[in-house]
């Protein structure tokens, strides 16, 4: 039964790898072009293990940003994991400490998305932690392998292929589908404006200022003018 849950998790994750693998490749290429070594780029994928924040880390590092800017940008991006953690915690409370450490480490957007459904419908009757392990591990392996392939490609692909441009493109692919109503659109536009005009702020703090500005605007509009 545990084995079956594990493989159900693996299978549930497979279609999502279509979005994960290109992103991992892009990160591998970007890491090298940002001046990180091959080891640093590859190990970042297991130490930090969070797509967008690794990309932001590499970009800010390459731009010579202050360490507190790098750390707080990454923290801001990953704040959403607190919500995921809160949602899955209920189903994991009977597990041993070791299990929860492993499943916590493997918690990502994708593994949360596929697991939460299974947890809430089968959490009572089946060993769903094996489902989480299967889906989380599948994503982890795909992320590590695609980073390694990206790193190898990154040192051989010629500059004029403009692969660094893949970063904003990947982010466009993530952001555009999220722009569903007025608050989200205004949030995006405000952030863009602050990010452009704030670029001369010291230590690259523009990223934090722009992000906080956008979040405040979006959340305030949503609060005062709830959208359907």
């Amino acid at each position: 039964m545990s084995r079956k849950e594990f493989f159900l998790g693996v299978t549930a994750m497979l279609p999502l790898l279509l979005g994960v693998v290109p992103f991992g490749l892009v990160f591998g290429v970007l890491g090298i072009s940002s001046g990180l070594t091959e080891t640093e780029t590859i190990l970042m994928s297991s130490i930090v293990f969070a797509g967008a924040s690794q990309v932001v880390f590499a970009q800010l590092w390459a731009a010579g940003s202050a360490y507190f800017v790098i750390a707080s940008s990454v923290a801001l991006i990953n704040l959403r994991h607190v919500l995921y953690s809160a949602s899955v915690a209920e189903y994991l409370k009977k597990l041993s400490f070791k299990w929860r450490i492993v499943l916590g480490y493997l918690l990502t957007d994708e593994s949360f998305a596929v697991s939460i459904k299974r947890l809430s419908t089968h959490g009572e009757r089946r060993p769903v932690h094996f489902f989480m392990l299967g889906s989380g591990l599948t994503l982890w392996i795909a992320w590590q392998l695609s980073t390694i392939v990206g790193v190898i490609a990154g040192s051989t692909i010629p500059e004029n292929w403009e692969l660094a441009f893949a970063i904003p493109l990947t982010f466009i692919a993530i952001v555009v589908p999220l722009l569903k109503n007025t608050p989200t659109i205004i949030c995006a536009l405000t952030t863009c404006l602050i990010a452009i005009f704030g670029q001369s702020l010291p230590w690259n703090t523009w990223i934090i200022v722009a992000a906080l500005g956008g979040i405040l605007i979006g959340a305030s509009i949503e609060k005062w003018k709830p959208s359907k």
């Binding site: 932001v56 441009f165 970063i167 989200t184 949030c187 995006a188 452009i196 990223i207 722009a210």
Partner: peptide
């Protein structure tokens, strides 16, 4: 509510800064 705007804002900031320099 605040957290739901984090991905949009952070990623938009990166997009804008890689397209425009000021």
């Amino acid at each position: 509510r605040y957290v739901s705007y984090v991905p949009i804002s952070v990623l938009s900031a990166i997009i804008a800064s890689s397209l425009f320099t000021h």
